[in-house]
Design a protein around this nucleic acid. Structure first.
Lengths: 349, 349
DNA sequence: ATTAGCACTCAAAAGATTCGAGTGCTAATA
DNA sequence: TATTAGCACTCGAATCTTTTGAGTGCTAAT
């Protein structure tokens, strides 16, 4: 059933007990406590012996002589791996169900981050899906007044992009019509990436090289299409970290909160997560394992979600190492389902 | 020159010296320090006498017997009022210069908040201007595919709103043309507020009551126009408060940072500031004066800015009471000028 | 009106003491 | 051989004590 981790059954049980207890209390746990409050009826002395062994093996640590033990990163890792194994079945079911709709998405994701933070009591982040592989669905230029044209571009997933273009001279109605026709027939269905300089040059030719204005407008359109919206990241519950004393000496608190405020560092987390898609999109970074150095004293759990057509985003939960991994994994799953449900029903809210 | 604040010249100088010193050090300042490090050559004893008076008058406070004095809120208030008086001239010059353009504004405001935070070492917020009094400049419906219409609405200040509308049946090209014509001729130039249910009802009549689809589309358009985008607030430098120990016991730090994260509370600050437009749009809240209760141990300085046509926003700086008011006022001024300059030159970046 | 002088206060820093949870080891036990 | 009881020992944390020094208010002299 459970894989062999090279430890006696009893050692495993004891290790698990230590971690569980430490997750709850945040205090080092001693042999006496375990002896009293676990099923395996063993005296504290026996447990001490086992603990000494576990310490030698590097799974637990004594913060100082005559203190109880706390899990090491290696200990957490073992624990999480075991959990993952148990949950594997559920995890497989939970993913890849999101719908292809993206209108008003920001509000929803913001809300998602918030809900997750409230439920878990950890800090959370949700990255908006990036859509570089997206395709163009509709494009239209409209004359607003003599000097201004507005370009509206709809991409797959109903992502809408806008651009006001200042033009020196009026384009004229027929020109505009022709241009719109041309743009739609040529570009519709093309992937954003495929619309390169060559394509634009050809467009200019077809539209008639004579007009400086048209050239200018086309450039603006091309630019707008390609504007890689910098990765939007929504965060919530950053202040939850104040609930965990081990993270809240001035120094650490400042660093972590700063990371959440500036968000720059979080993008690394996103790219990292999206890159290494093991474990069915669920990733657990413990302590030093995390790609974000300011979080070396935390655990970070990330999940990817996908809204069809390669639009992937990341959900992340950041908390202390003594994170309630079980609950976190469950919450992530629920969130994904919820997101899916809300999204299918009413994409506009 | 300086108005009479009901204090002897010497008391004023001493009070000022106390505050200045306390602003720098954050430590209570004693009589000896003042005696040594000020121009007015007075013995510590004399200064003690004056300080006793100032304390009786409520301008300074002794945190405990045998400590130096720190400014009371009343003391700060006096100090700031004097500063304001000095700066009045400059302040008058600095406002109401912003340009009527709002494309990509969010990025710029975000940046502004950041710059301000870096310069002052305090926490900052910038609210995006709200434009309820705005007028409609251009509107257009376009068929994206059989079931979808996209509505594009351009308001004064080039604020663009979008909405995808799902329709049951295709509208048909002529219908769309007629509708667009109708919308533009009727609504152009109207203020957003003026476009009420009556106007929409009349539109429906004119468009021909026969079509259920048209009615549906018009409703969606009306809704989109009125969607009060919830006030966007950009913040930066929240972690700067960690630089001021008097704000950073766990409790306070958590509350303040939370306020910055949730932003909800900050909207109060914005509305309050916009409402009471004294002092040429510059407002200083000291301690309990602030509308946001979580900031009762801080000082909050806010300024309004205006981008033509009633589009007003707020800039705020939140820091300890011992804030460098002089520098803050100056920075606010500079920011406004900068915003203006950047904005005039290149509204798209 | 100003100042020197002095006794007094009190928070903060430094040091001393106590307390107790937890350990490792040894010897007894099953 | 594995487990357990017992005990001396360790050491951080909590508590209490002492010291220190900046700062005060008051009084008397200038």
């Amino acid at each position: 059933m459970t894989a062999d981790y090279g430890l006696s059954e009893r050692k495993l049980v004891i290790l698990q007990a230590i971690i569980k207890n430490y997750l709850e209390t945040g205090e080092p746990v001693g042999s006496r406590t375990l002896s009293k409050y676990t099923e395996l009826n063993l005296s504290s002395a026996t447990i001490r012996n086992e603990m000494a062994d576990l310490e030698d093996l590097g799974y637990i640590i004594q913060p100082h002589t005559s203190a109880g033990r706390i899990p090491s990163d290696k200990g957490y890792r073992l624990y999480v791996d075991m959990l993952m194994e148990d949950k594997e079945q559920e995890i497989i079911e939970m993913r890849d169900k999101m719908l292809e709709k993206a209108d008003k998405m920001d509000k929803m994701l913001k809300q998602a981050a918030k809900v997750l933070a409230t439920n878990t009591n950890y800090a959370t982040m949700v990255s908006a899906p990036i859509n570089s592989r997206n395709t163009l669905k509709f494009i239209q230029l409209s004359q607003v007044d003599e000097n201004q044209v507005v370009a509206v571009i709809v991409l797959g997933g109903n992502v809408i992009k806008n651009k006001m273009i200042d033009v020196g001279e009026s384009l004229g109605n027929e020109n505009l019509l022709k241009l719109n026709m041309l743009l739609n027939t040529t570009l519709n269905g093309m992937s954003v990436e495929a619309i390169n300089l060559g394509v634009i040059a050809r467009l200019k030719e077809q539209a008639g090289i004579h007009s400086e204005v048209i050239s200018q407008v086309l450039d603006a359109v091309a630019e707008t299409i390609h504007v890689e919206e910098d990765m939007e990241i929504y965060t919530s519950g950053a202040t939850n970290i104040f609930k965990y004393p081990e993270l809240t000496d001035k120094q650490s608190a400042q660093e972590i909160i700063h990371a959440f405020e500036e968000k720059q560092q979080l993008t690394e987390l996103v790219t990292e997560t999206l890159a290494s898609e093991d474990n069915h999109g669920i990733q657990v970074y413990i302590g030093d394992e995390t790609p974000v150095k300011t979080m070396k004293d935390c655990s970070v759990v990330t999940a990817t979600y996908e809204l069809g057509e390669g639009m992937k985003g990341t959900i992340g939960i950041i908390g202390p190492k003594r994170m309630d991994y079980e609950n976190v994994l469950k919450s992530l799953k629920i969130l994904q389902t919820e997101l899916d449900a809300i999204y299918k029903k009413d994409p506009d809210t």
